[in-house]
């Protein structure tokens, strides 16, 4: 917490206004029925009172539910494709929870791997992620089991912590530190402020009682991988909707489609879900037509395949898949029910 700063809550709107001059500022809003990140309206900071997390994870700002990759127009001479107008505005997202911030570093490696994905990475490079330490986690949260926590800073540029009348402000990344360092609205935090933040964070961490042992989940999943009856049972109540995947902060599967009428149109990318049987449908066959195979793939992608590729577990414990599931399918219960490790395949 060295060099930490603070801002009085009544000055937060001022600070955001200041940042609005250089950045498009987004903040939690529930103006249209659900909590989501929306363009900050220039005054409302009431989210400090009600906001726990958004329904749409922060990924949707970088990998939107649907986006135009390029426009297409046809004329006598052929086709013309054109990229969407380049946007150079920086974007500052205020109030990102630690679980969501962490998801960004998990997604970054996917979109940097092999071929760079210009759409995602361009937005990421223009963004400042301002985190908001969790002080009131939900009973569905299990971030502390997956290398995160209510005060984890991974993926953030700056982190704010609500310490009562003030917000403690810490620069995390180089970009964030620079932004915090030169700011006149921010005062130096005292030892008392820092102690208070420490206490609040500890209390938040204690509130997270949903815990799973992920130490050997990779091996345990591998051991049970071919056990169809296990997966049949685990997937029985799943209805194969896309809630847990489309609204997961780390799920990134997408589809590419054209939308064209007359000679004008565009190629779009949109989020897709491995929970849909249409996802892997090929003209002649479908390797994951069975629901249990899809549930297995979803779980294993997060806890087995992704870790094999990129070391980390592709889950941040945000709990959305538990909270929003139509049938209360609970990933932590399933991971808990994995049989203890025995002879594994590799």
């Amino acid at each position: 917490m060295a060099d930490s700063k603070k801002v009085r809550k009544e000055d937060l709107a001022g600070l955001l206004t200041e940042w609005s001059r250089d950045y498009a500022v987004l903040a939690p809003s529930r103006a249209d029925g659900v909590a989501r990140m929306a363009a900050w309206d220039g005054e409302d900071i009431s989210f400090l009172d009600w906001y726990r997390n958004t329904i749409n994870p922060v990924k949707s700002l970088f990998l939107p539910p649907v986006e135009e990759m390029f426009s297409i127009s046809r004329n006598e001479r052929g086709h013309r494709i054109e990229l969407p107008p380049k946007d150079d505005t920086g974007c500052l997202v205020f109030g990102v929870r630690p679980c969501d911030a962490r998801s960004l570093i998990l997604l970054d490696v996917v979109f940097e791997d092999a071929y760079e994905d210009p759409y995602y990475l361009d937005r990421r490079r223009r963004s400042i992620v301002v985190g908001l330490c969790c002080t009131n986690p939900c009973d569905s949260c299990f971030c502390t089991s997956v290398d995160s926590g209510p005060a984890a800073t991974a993926g953030m540029d700056i982190m704010f912590t609500d310490i009562g009348d003030n917000l403690l402000v810490e620069g995390i990344s180089r970009k964030g530190k620079e932004l915090v360092a030169g700011n006149a609205t921010l005062a130096k935090a005292t030892r008392t402020d820092e102690n208070r933040a420490r206490k609040i964070r500890l209390a938040a961490e204690k509130k997270i009682t949903r815990k799973i042992d992920t130490g050997d989940s990779k091996e345990r999943l591998l051991a049970v991988f071919e056990d169809e009856s296990f997966w049949q049972q685990v997937s029985a109540k799943c209805v194969s909707c896309g809630v847990c995947t489309l609204l997961c902060p780390t799920c990134y599967c997408f589809d590419i489609n054209d939308a064209m009428t007359g000679g004008e149109g565009s190629r779009c990318r949109s989020l897709d879900s491995c929970a849909f049987s249409s996802y892997t449908k090929m003209p002649m066959e479908n390797p994951r037509a069975d629901k249990w195979r899809r549930v297995r793939n979803k779980l294993c992608h997060k806890y087995e395949f992704y870790p094999m590729l990129f070391d980390n577990i592709a889950c941040t414990g945000c709990g959305r898949c538990i909270r929003l599931c139509p049938v209360n399918w609970d990933i932590t219960q399933v991971l808990d029910s994995l049989p203890a490790k025995h002879e594994s395949k590799i």
Partner: peptide, 19 residues
């Protein structure tokens, strides 16, 4: 192997066989 590849560059996710 024939799989329902889509993006061709290992990102869109649908052609995975395990990792």
């Amino acid at each position: 192997l024939e799989k329902r590849m889509k993006c061709g560059i290992g990102k869109c996710g649908r052609c995975n066989i395990g990792n």
